[in-house]
Amino acid sequence: MNIFRLAGDMTHLMSILVLLLKIYATKSCSGISLKTQELYAVVFLARYLDLLTDFFSLYNTVMKVVFIVSSLAIVWCMRYHRAVRRTYDRELDTFRHYFLILGSFVLALIFHEKFTVREIFWAFSIYLEAVAILPQLVLLQRSGNVDNLTGQYVFFLGAYRGFYILNWIYRYFTEAHFGRWIASISGLVQTALYADFFYYYFLSWKNNAKLKLPA
């Protein structure tokens, strides 16, 4: 564990806490893409298949459980909670995310560390996570002004993988044979997808204005 990875995990946890706060405090999920939340639930379920078989550390296991439970709870809340589900922007959240699942799985069948079920599901989860934010970014562009908590949620979610890139650079230079090209390249693509969001987020912060993504 290095400081970059810890910062990344804490930022990721922060994004989830901000989203839970938004939904719980405002009893609303307006501006949040259910499809992105569903993709993240698939990402964690596919990536942490080893949850019950391998044990690295208490931290590792606890964080995996937190990510899986929180992502499923958010999906459940947006689908079935009486008050929350009414605030879901169903007509704006129309990204066909099934293609993202299919595409990521096909890519994982081609590029993986080893041709085993676990490694293919792991690569699938890495590729899917890289594109999972797309429905959310599209929804933000369509839903005009973005409320603060939603903006902070997306910001922390994008920043966490940026910290992981620093972690991979650090591990590349400090560990003998550290080659995690699948995660590194996918992480670069993932962070790059947030580039324009980060730009408009920075502008809104600098001008102290409401965050607004151009349609």
């Binding site: 990875r5 690295f56 964080m63 990510f67 560390e113 992981y164 044979h177 550290f178 080659g179």
Partner: peptide, 10 residues
């Protein structure tokens, strides 16, 4: 030898 294919990262 090849790195043990474990995923210690989240």
């Amino acid at each position: 030898g090849t790195t043990l294919l474990y995923h210690d990262e989240l």
